[in-house]
Design a protein around this nucleic acid. Sequence first.
DNA 1: TTGTATGCGTTATCAT
DNA 2: ATGATAACGCATACAA
Lengths: 334, 334
Amino acid sequence: MEDVARRAGVSTATVSRTLRGLPNVSADTRGRVLAAAAELSYVVSPIASRLASRRTHTVGVVVPHAARWYFSKVVAGAEEVLREAGLDLLLYSLGDLSARTRFFDQLPLRRRVDAVLTVAMPLTEPEYEAVHTLGVPVVATGLRATGTHCVRIDDTGVMLTAVEHLAGLGHRRIGMISTYADQSMWLPVAHERRAGYLAGLAVTGLPVEPDLVVSVPFGVSGGERAMRRLMERPDPPSAVVAESDELAFGAVAAARRMGLAVPGDVSVVGIDDHDLSDVMDLTTVRQEVVEQGVQAGRMIVRAVQHPGEEPRELVLPTSLVVRGSTAPVAGSSP
Amino acid sequence: MEDVARRAGVSTATVSRTLRGLPNVSADTRGRVLAAAAELSYVVSPIASRLASRRTHTVGVVVPHAARWYFSKVVAGAEEVLREAGLDLLLYSLGDLSARTRFFDQLPLRRRVDAVLTVAMPLTEPEYEAVHTLGVPVVATGLRATGTHCVRIDDTGVMLTAVEHLAGLGHRRIGMISTYADQSMWLPVAHERRAGYLAGLAVTGLPVEPDLVVSVPFGVSGGERAMRRLMERPDPPSAVVAESDELAFGAVAAARRMGLAVPGDVSVVGIDDHDLSDVMDLTTVRQEVVEQGVQAGRMIVRAVQHPGEEPRELVLPTSLVVRGSTAPVAGSSP
DNA sequence: TTGTATGCGTTATCAT
DNA sequence: ATGATAACGCATACAA
């Protein structure tokens, strides 16, 4: 920086001001400084800059599984706007329980980030407090949050929509594929969607049959297992809603492997509108996942610039996408 | 840090040494320092540490599309080992061409990273040089690289395997679904896989029919388009290989939507063993994508510790996974 | 608008 | 093994 200052005939302070785009620099000197910097192909050291300014210009993004569809989409959406805003994105993937406890124990984010974005990470009370000791704004996506900003969808609503769709097709016995917490992550969403399922039954006047709700680990193979369990019953349901499309994929595959026709013998609905839902011809309730990341990124940017603002909540819309995995119930005249 | 030093009755230098685990600290003082640090819940400022040590402890990971299956897997694999090694992972997703040119123009990684990991990013000559002006080690995954470390698979080999599998089933007219460069990314892989296809034909003594190779944009819908083009011909092939599973998914869906049976009327083989290939019952050639990220991460760690080493190349194994999308050619007695 | 001088919180060098 | 002290490369309060 001294070199640039000398070459431009100014002080390092002016160089600093110029390079940061501060207003109080005359157009003339600004030009000389920029020219000098360009000639020397100089760029400020972000590290030194951060030390001096006491701001990290970094946001910590913590996800349960960086490689999963939902999370990678959200991260990609957030990355775009954070990058745009000049914020570095520090990725933490808390795959297993040990990684998670270590993370909240040691808090590697201390003195390291200006904000935190949690992607579909329900926090326990101690975890929540640990994050808040960081003293930086927090934005959560994928679930309802109290005390922090959040962007999410109506998780009970999507399931209600799915059930109403099936009921509208004449289905009166509807199963649900749910997940149990893999390591206490994801819990609230599973809970809300189950609530939405029950709400759907209530609204459409269908009886609740507890045995028609099966819980499995998240993933395609979980969906397969669940579907087998449901359809091997003496009185299988004529339709099934799945907590997510990936579960639904497994469900459809399992049904077909059992020799059942989808949607002939059993209709299936998912949630997400996964990239592959179209080729799987899966009826689903669409959510805009990348958009969630984008909006969360914007919230982060705002929060970094105006910390201490009231926590805001953004609920993004969803929409039913009817495809070929659902049909009127067999033997009915809809 | 001064507080800790005072509390432990030592100098800040000793605190620094202790906290970094340097050997030249007596067990006694070490204990006192650690205790003091714990009591004050003190952690070193990574930023100050980096400024003083002149090492960023950060690696830049640059990918074309953070949200796509392949890339998110590699990133997740790399994240794990980088985190373990105490290296921050700075993610850059170069979605479109403008983002890409800006990236290589301005080189936001300057003075910011100790190493760079490029994930399936074929670099033009100027881009290659731009990256090397960073003066840090570079590791590439997903493609053959010269002058840098790299971890990849045998891209011609996988396609050769796919073709040999089909030829072994009696297929004599095999189409290929290829991609054209979306913005010059991904080019070499497409090229090598096409070469593998041709090699497969040669090895099995099949004639080359240029019209049986169709190029489409990457993605499920690209696969659909390609399959329609192939099967609408007066003399459609009896089998099709796709450059990747996602293309193959689209191909299978398109064939079925045209009323064709898979594998009855046309067999389909993909490359990847995508998470959903099992439910799609897709025969494919499996590659270990997360493992590629892990290995790349290890290479990065080594490169950061011992810069200037000879570029190493790691070629990971692949394996044919036979599922239900391939069958002996109709009308043959295999 | 511009310059001076101090501080940011460490690491590293050189003594001891 | 430990301590004093000078970098590290900037931002910023203050003065001009």
